[in-house]
Design a protein around this nucleic acid. Sequence first.
DNA 1: CTCTGTGCAAAATATTTGCAGGCTC
DNA 2: GAGCCTGCAAATATTTTGCACAGAG
Lengths: 145, 145
Amino acid sequence: MKQKEHMTDFPALLRDMGLKATPGRISLLEFLSKESKPLTVSAIQKKFGKKIDTVTLYRTLEDFADKGIVRRVDFEHSHAHYEIVAGRKHHHHIICKKCEKVEDVDVCESEGVERNVLQKVKDFSFITNHSLEFFGICNQCIKSN
Amino acid sequence: MKQKEHMTDFPALLRDMGLKATPGRISLLEFLSKESKPLTVSAIQKKFGKKIDTVTLYRTLEDFADKGIVRRVDFEHSHAHYEIVAGRKHHHHIICKKCEKVEDVDVCESEGVERNVLQKVKDFSFITNHSLEFFGICNQCIKSN
DNA sequence: CTCTGTGCAAAATATTTGCAGGCTC
DNA sequence: GAGCCTGCAAATATTTTGCACAGAG
């Protein structure tokens, strides 16, 4: 099915989303699909093999986020992190407030939550996405306290 | 009970938290307790009656957040928002991606979620807090599309 | 008096805007 | 060829750091 094709066929994914399949975008998606944790813009620039202009990267990530190809995650660190969505199971994160370690969290919150929310609020009729992150202190940081 | 006292007795709240009860902090808390939505640092500076130095404000809010007096909220806007916790029921938010309108959301997610999370992750033994925000397009922005 | 809190200057980071030229479709 | 994409320069915004002085306890 479509979902599966997209895991590897990034040009098709981009075109389906109405974006042009340029070499830069394709290799960025290839890179992101191998990363396991959300990365900052500057971290992407460092680890990514090819050079990308900072501005282009910001713009590309924003476009991708708008299309749901990547997800922007805020870890209360004063700079955004991004992770690929395509080909991954929906998940959340738990972040260490001391060392900033990030671990994925597979909480299967019922889809019902969003419906529930829509019944309670007054000025919104639909939800596009949500963020859910947990914060704590990781076991290593507790020991080395 | 203690909780209630703190709603109004900010000097006592500050001292209980190990912070000094300075005039600036007290009036900042009084100001925040009257605000209904999370505010950015610059918004606080504009609306707050007295002058506060930007740096002091950043440091104060961070200290308050560490003590759980205020809560830092990220709306994917590239700058943090803060709201007071003391005297408020735990809640989340729904944010309009077009106009940035914010509405409170009272989802009573079971306390069990955090316990649930701790069973699934491997490097964490406790959670200090979590964030949960919903994103969508508000009814006004849909009409005026 | 001691130690935390505040203000000011300055730096470091993060993000956005405008424009000219390049490349996908 | 048209219109989106990219890179570069520069501006803007956000957050942090260092230090001297002030004020709470």
